[in-house]
Write a protein that binds this DNA or RNA. Structure first.
Lengths: 200, 200
DNA sequence: CCGCAAATATGCAGAGACTGCAAGATCGGC
DNA sequence: GCCGATCTTGCAGTCTCTGCATATTTGCGG
């Protein structure tokens, strides 16, 4: 089932637009970039841009949606018996290991941090990941899609990942992100039991 | 420290704009409502609208930000020794008890469900709640503001609340929301342990 | 190969969103 | 009552975003 030429071309266009939007925004600042410029950089008409994205902001965070898909596929590939939080741990470790992708991802995260108008779109992209994760967890556990367990788990996990990456960026990217991810997963697994003893 | 006339007036204007935006969007559909109409309904100039909100969408979900403040105050008022998740449980119960506010809140939630462009803004509003909650938890537990525990707890709790309300709305508002909230909190407290047995 | 039907891309026109700026109107304290 | 600070407003102008009609491309059966 090789996807037809049509679909591949569409995907390429979407990626080109997203990449162009991100790069232009990083170098010139989001406000200085117009849709026209993004379209030109991706070699399509401005009108076509809006066939793919409904705003500049959405295009800039398009890569997050792809990461969501990636994460979903990796999770689905984990052994069925593995505890959910451990699967997540393993998947995150693997994804963070992909250095080139990580670089682009960090650039985007920094941009979002400096451009408040991107925050809502970024969160919407995370929500897409969450829906995907919910579906996978429901299938994995054999629970009904309307059960609360898969939904709450997916939401909590995505929220924790978001916190991990945010904190890591805020701390000047000290230490390794994988370690932070480990710690937030531990917190979830411990049931958010009351405060650990204040540090030294 | 009675807040000055100036501040009170600003707050009234903000609320008037938010309420007008919500009501107009509910009755006519978001796309059919212009900023000019919202401004007129709130008795200010269109230009002034943009001094308060940066888009229609933001105005429509403005009430969420107020709810965030409310939730924050209620949480801060809980006894210091109470386990965090129990405080959240109690606060949610109390907030849901306020029927008139709940009505408006449900109307807004339904609108968001039917207008996808509101989702990002809604999530951003939740993020504001989350920041507030993080600060309160940090103070309560005496942990440093950069510690992961308050941030992860706040994020997980807000995510769970979001799931609870979404599911409740999707299930035709059967049963009581308070019960759903109880169940999602239980899931968090149990550390998202692997799947409960599939239902009957 | 050809030609048709569906899917995409593009151009165009227009309503509206949003912003910077400068001029008025109000508030709060002295 | 006066002054500085703050808010509101109008205006001009750019850019976003959409609907619609038209051209172009792709996938497929003949």
């Amino acid at each position: 089932m090789t996807t037809g030429l049509r679909e591949r071309k569409k995907l390429r266009t979407r990626r080109a637009l997203g990449a162009a939007a991100l790069e232009l925004a990083v170098t010139h600042g989001l406000a200085e970039v117009t849709v026209e410029q993004i379209a030109e950089a991706a070699d399509v008409s401005p009108r076509t841009f809006f066939n793919y994205f409904s705003s500049k902001e959405e295009a800039v965070v398009a890569a997050d949606v792809e990461r969501a898909r990636d994460m979903g596929e990796r999770l689905a590939a984990r052994p069925a018996g593995e505890p959910v939080l451990e699967s997540v741990r393993a998947v995150m470790r693997a994804m963070l290991g992909d250095a080139p992708r990580s670089r682009e991802w960090i650039a985007q995260a920094r941009l979002v941090k400096s451009e408040p108008s991107l925050v809502p779109q970024q969160l919407a992209a995370y929500a897409a990941s969450e829906r995907r994760l919910t579906a996978i967890l429901a299938e994995r556990t054999g629970l009904d899609a309307t059960d609360l367990y898969p939904a709450v788990t997916a939401a909590a996990v995505m929220a924790a990942m978001r916190v991990a990456t945010t904190r890591w960026l805020e701390s000047d990217e000290h230490g390794d992100l994988a370690g932070v991810v480990d710690r937030v997963i531990d917190l979830l697994a411990d049931g958010l039991r009351d405060a650990p003893a204040p540090g030294p």
